[in-house]
Design a binder for these strands. Sequence first.
DNA 1: TAAATAAGATAGCCAAGCTATGTAATTGGT
DNA 2: ACCAATTACATAGCTTGGCTATCTTATTTA
Lengths: 153, 153
Amino acid sequence: MQSSRETPQADAATERRASELIVAASRFVRAASRHRGRDRSPIVLRTLSNLLASGPMRIGDLAVAEHITQPTMTGVVKRMELEGLVARESDPDDGRAWLVAITPAGQEVLEGFRVRAGERVEPALAHLTEEERSILWSAARIMGKVTAELNSE
Amino acid sequence: MQSSRETPQADAATERRASELIVAASRFVRAASRHRGRDRSPIVLRTLSNLLASGPMRIGDLAVAEHITQPTMTGVVKRMELEGLVARESDPDDGRAWLVAITPAGQEVLEGFRVRAGERVEPALAHLTEEERSILWSAARIMGKVTAELNSE
DNA sequence: TAAATAAGATAGCCAAGCTATGTAATTGGT
DNA sequence: ACCAATTACATAGCTTGGCTATCTTATTTA
């Protein structure tokens, strides 16, 4: 059971725990997102979050950022525009392109989601120990690092 | 801005971090699940995982366990059956019901997903410190606890 | 035994993903 | 300066996975 430089046993254990982490995170996200009220889909919320952080963006750039195809993002933006969450203006530098910007209504929706999601999970988090909560906050940061590396491939 | 018996400042901070956790987990799951090969959807994989852990189950019980409606689970099981991932047999105790069981092919699919997902994220995890990895494993367990509480409501 | 209940199936809708392809604007090579 | 290639987005058509409403059939119960 001694380790080699590739430590295949460790890799197998890591892979198993990694898949458990994915499943646990997947179930958690589903449970936490199932709160009441005017729900928006994950892709809409991620797009709003992206626009708030980065300012107006082209549809193609939004698609790349969210790792979906351009036709899919075109449809998402179209629905968001109908709901008034974003506005589009033609790109002065390129007649083919549009700039999509978050509206005040879009910002309210995003903030409302954050508040309600927090409200929903907060009681469950309150039953954890202080140490367990701090593990979750650290895990959020670490998952962010891992996600960035996965997305850079 | 003084604190009441409910310590609103702490709640607000917890809510904010909770929403950050949800977003981080959501992006991580998407990134980790975007591996190549014969992909199955999250609901199919969760259902397989559930059947493997719990043995043959009724469609209605599967729907409750996954928090989707019965008609949706009927469709999921139908597609899984066409792919040979599950088999159904009539419930000897209730002529209206079916028992859905995972097949060897379903077990292979589930195991294959676990291996590929692990393979995909393992390199990124290898760049973390030992402590960071152990935080993620702990977080998986804690998210499971929180999910159970959220789902029990 | 008739009524109420429960388990699945069906129908019909929508959102969100995909590939393939079309259109219009921009860029680039000669 | 022009024509070809590329680029940005739109459209068409498909699948999956979610929903509600309703139907059928089997079981329970009054």
